[in-house]
Structure formats: C-alpha cells, structure tokens
Design a protein around this nucleic acid. Sequence first.
DNA 1: GCCGTTTTCGGCCCGACTGTTTTCAGTCG
Length: 597
Amino acid sequence: MPSTNASLTAVFEDMARLTEVLGGNGFKVNAFVKAARVVEALERDAASFSRSELVALPGVGTGTADRILEFVESGAVADHEDLKERVPAGVVALMGISGIGPKSAARFWHEAEVESIDDLKAAIDDGRLAALKGFGQKKIDGIAKSLAFAERFGDRHRRGVAAALAGAVAEAVAGVEGVRRVEAAGSLRRGAETIGDVDVLAAVPGPGPSAEDPTPAPDPGVTAAVFDAVEKLDGVEEVLVRGDTKLSVRFGAGLQADVRAVPAACFGAALAYFTGSKEHNVALRERAGKRGMSLSEYALTDKRGGAVVASATEAEIHGALGLAFVPPELREDRGEVQRAEAAHDAGEPLPRLVETADLKAELHAHTTASDGVMSIDELVEAALARGFHSVAVTDHSRSQVQANGLSAGRLEKHIEAVRDAAKRWKKQISVLAGSEVDILADGTMDYPDDLLAELDVVVASPHAALAQEPEAATRRLLRAIENPHVTVMGHLTGRLVLKREGLSPDMPAIVKAAADRGVALEINASPYRLDLRDRHAALALEAGVRLAINTDAHGPDNFLNAVHGVATARRAGAQARDVVNTFGREELAAWIRSTKR
DNA sequence: GCCGTTTTCGGCCCGACTGTTTTCAGTCG
C-alpha cells in the first residue's frame, strides 16, 4: 500500500477514536472509521486522486476529500491536530483494554485524572476508580484482569495456535448429542494472519426465524450441553460470559474462545454474521436497509411485516442482497461488496480463489543436510503423501551457520545425492535439486553464479540484516531479483508475525522488477512468517507477478501449513493460475526453465 | 460526516450480555 494511504488511514482512525472519547456524534465517528477503510483499500496512492474522484468514492464526502487533499498538501490534517491537543495521548490507549469503551475512558480521564495505562493501574490501587459512581468491585476486578491479561499476552495471536485451539473446541462441540453442525468463524475463517478471539458456531435444534419470532432461541438443553463440554476442555482457565446463546472462555495459553449456539435454520445468517469482519457486516446491513430489508445474525428479513427472506445459507443471503457469493477471506470491506454486486449483475460468480487442494508441488523444503528432520527420501515421501508431482530440496546456504548451511563443497555432494534420488523416484515425482540461498546484506548471493547454475530451483531469501533501512533493503532485493539463476524470492521481508517487523522495501518497485524478470514471489506458509503478507501479495498480482505458496517444511507435518499460505493468497484474491505450485508437472518444469537467463 | 427509487434534512446496523441499574447504559462483536 502506498505510504500516503497508510498514513491517512491512521489519521482517520485516530480522529474516530478521539471524537469518540470526546463524546462527539457517533455517526461522525463511524464516518471517520469508514473513511479510514476506504483510504486503506485504495489501489492507487491517495495523492493521485482529484477532489471529484475522491468525492465519487462511496463513504467519502466533501469533508473527507478536503482532509485528504490537505494531508497530501501539508502532511497533516488541522482538525486532527486540534483533536490531539484536546486529549492526552494516553487516553485513547485506555480503550484498548477489554471492558473499557469511550464512555469509561472519558470518565476515568475527567473524574479520576487517569491519562495513561500506568495512571489506570495506580487509580485501581489507590481506590480512585472505586470512588466513581457506577463502578462497583466487579467492574474494577474485570478491568484489572483485562490489564494483566493484555500485559501477559498482548491481544493478538498467530493463526497457527488459534487454528489448533478452534479445532479442539469444534471437536468437543461436535461430540455433543443434538449438534447439527459446527464451524469456526471470525478472523480465523477470514484467513487473517493474527487472531484476536476464536469464534466457534454451533447449529443446534430450535425453531426457524419467522415474522412472529425473529430471534428464535436455540434448544436450551443442547446449548447447555455444548457450553458444558467447552468449559470442561483442557486449558480452560476462566469462564468470562455464559448466557443463553453465548459462552466465552479464556484459555491458559492466552486465547479467548467465543462459542455461540443458534437454531440450525439460522446457521447461514449466523455464520455470515460471526465471520465478519465488522466493517463488512455493516456494509451488508446498510445494503439490506437500502433494499427494504434488515439483516441480523438470525435472518435477512423484509422490513415491512418481517417475513424471512433468507437465513439457512450464506449464499442465499448474498444472493438476496443482489451479490455474488463473497468468499470469507475477502470480507474486509475493501471493495468486495462492489465487486460482488458487479459480478451478480453480470450473472457470474466472483473468480474462484486458489484452494489447498490445487497445490501440486513444494518448492521450498529442508532435509537433515541443513536444519530439517527429514532425509531426502522422507521429504519425497511426505510430498507424495500430499499428492504432489514435484518437490524441490532446498537446504540452507553456507552463511546460515546456525542452521548447518551447506558449504559449496557440501552443496556439490548434496546435489549429487538429490539427482540420485530423482532417478529413483522419477516415475512418481520430480525431485528437483535446489537451495535456499541467502541474500547477503548487499544483495549478492551466498554462492557464486557457476554453482547456482547447477541447481534446478534457487529460492533466494534474506535471513540477516533484517533491520536494514528501506532504501538499502530495496537495493538488496532488487539485486537478488536480477540474479539470472533465481527462481523464487523466499520470505521477502523476513518478518516474523507479532515478533519482528523485517524489511520494508519499496514494494511497488520490487513487484515491478519481479514482473519484468519473471521470477515468483513466495508466500511462506509458516504461521510464524506468512511472508509475503496479503497486501503485498495483492500488489504482486496486480503487477502480474506469479506467487509461490511454499511451506518451508523442516518436518513432514509442516506440509499442513500450506492452508495458512493459501488463506493469505485468497485474501489477496489469488486464483489457481496465479500460483506456480498449482501448475502441472510439465508446465511447472517449463515455467522454471523460463526463469533462467 | 455521509447520503437519497421513502428523504437535500433527518436519518444512519443489530443483538447478547453484564453490572448496578429499579428500566438501562456500556461494551462487545
């Protein structure tokens, strides 16, 4: 995303929060949030838009347009600066604590002199909070718990741990007598790289929605059994909420799971609702309203009379709203509703996104030669078990000493061993000799060109000097892309999810160079990496760059991580033909040859 | 602040749950 857009997104988000804490008009707050979403989703730099082009964007009026122009001109928005002067910097942060919203944050600030998280802790300890009307011991205990929790774990989690937990919860729920269907929803289903809470939805017996009973209750007996089963799961530390339809539990590992029970006839509406995102849901409800309907987690209904229009499946609801079915990974209110409308009007579905089952090759995997746990044959067998027609053996290069990277001499011998295995496995699978070659800080490769020329597949990856300035990082990566032997650029930024920011190169320049050169950019599917991230993958696709979804497998189970890489690719809108791992055996071989200069 | 085959003014997305309330505000998703 162009940097102007990122900065403007932050400005509008901050204006929303500041307006909220100052008790301003809630609809104005929503308008700022919406403006942030619109700017975030722009495909061009906001600076390149004229005023009339801006006003034509849905959600952007003259006020937002003028603020965008002001920011492009001067680098700041006067109204935003004014708001910031009126609110201490730490007050907005209070709203980041679960249980504290704008009203409470404002009261803490005005009535208890709380202007930061540290102030809040002190105010809890010295009784200033308890002196406020409406804040009993339970509320204060809840806030103290949330504070301690946020400090211990932060509020986001890698999707790998969230997926595992969701699986355990879903399994427990599915085992309850009377449960018709179970599905993980929320940001996990949308394929997001980090997850706040795990949402699991259970369909249980109960009446369908109707004009007389628009919010039918799920069977209380089955619902109670579902909630009991989840509360009994290993690792449940605390029950936060338990009502007639909703259970929230907190696990010791720091994750929270929300379980909802709905009558089976409402499952589609509920699944759409709990999958979100919030912004996407709001967009759908607004759309429903404009068409004389109302959308809730129970049903899409006619406003007059309340007749049920659709409720059982998501596809029916989207269709009744005049939309093609929107895959969960696209539901971020980044233009998908408009695209689904256009597709629906043309009588077509949205393009089919890449699926895990489409993957037929792995181009980045390690063996015991460097830091993997599989022999060459074990790696080949793991690939065969996935139904793959090709696998590249890509152990670390010599600079990766801690990972037992191969010296030039060891690589020569390793290539021989791979070629030998390739002959033995030839009838079943193509075994390719490769290497994950370090891109050194100056952009040179960790092996000389004549050695690289002996390899079928070169995955070029940065591993060190990951705090480099953007200019240096850009030069470094461009130089690697220009190397005539490189096939795939591996985990391009070197970021680690929730842990390390990694390189911040000029992505438009990188994707243009990759397009010109014909190399693929990897989506590293490890939930620790997910690098490229979704936005960058979308930029690559726009530039016509092929993606490679690789698991970077160090052990056989790592192949299962492909699903996370696919989720990221789907968020970017990737179709199967955009991903080289979906190519047929001969097609892939031909593509690899085409990358050689 | 945005928006209009109900509206250029007066609306604007829907429901569950909790706490401290005696009828509802605040928060969350």
